[in-house]
Design a protein around this nucleic acid. Structure first.
Lengths: 96, 96
DNA sequence: TATACATGTAATAAAATACTTACATATGAT
DNA sequence: ATCATATGTAAGTATTTTATTACATGTATA
């Protein structure tokens, strides 16, 4: 769910950096001062939420790089929207 | 942070119910099929995020009741907004 | 007094997230 | 061959979040 994807400060930073342009994972990890495995985890969640996309490419150096880019998004969040979102959710309920 | 507050399905349901009108905790717990202590926890997070407010009142029966009501909100979420939000965040960084 | 129903919270358990360490593979340059 | 730098992921640990259980207090009613 996109709201869950946006609930972590690291992921917001990732979005902020990607909003300035696409970047590949290792370089992104350096810019954010974050370990690559951890960055992967966050990127995965952002990708599942369709907030970012990725593509494998070849750097000038000849090494392969996985580029991530930000998908443009625009959401209006208000009571009504949350209510209709809530009605689509299933949550394990003890009673019935 | 309001995005964290909105990242849990129970809390979205709470908002959905409260959007139909104010309600007191015990009754809300029954409507949601949720234990009161758990509901308290979620209501606290929503209140910290300023999404709901509460007030103690006396029921016709004479018992005191803590009413919760939804605060009206409207947020535009897009890359730009996330970027500026991200810049306000401090996150523990290993390297400087 | 016992029952019913309200608030409030402490202590604990369970589950989900976040994070680290370690290693594997591949390519190009020295 | 070794070094540097890329991807990818498994396994384990740590932390945070979520959830339960068990109480305490107060008021009105039977």
């Amino acid at each position: 769910m996109f709201l869950e994807a946006l609930s972590n400060p690291h992921r917001l930073k990732i979005i902020a950096v990607l909003s300035e342009g696409r970047q590949y994972v290792s370089e992104l990890a350096r810019e954010l001062g974050m370990s690559r495995p951890l960055l992967y985890l966050h990127l995965q969640k952002l990708e599942e939420a369709k907030l970012v996309s990725s593509s494998m490419e070849i750097l000038e150096s000849g090494k392969t790089a996985k580029y991530y880019m930000l998908n443009s998004f625009h959401l209006e969040i208000n009571e009504e929207m949350i209510s209709s979102l809530a009605s689509t959710l299933t949550l394990k309920n003890k009673n019935t």
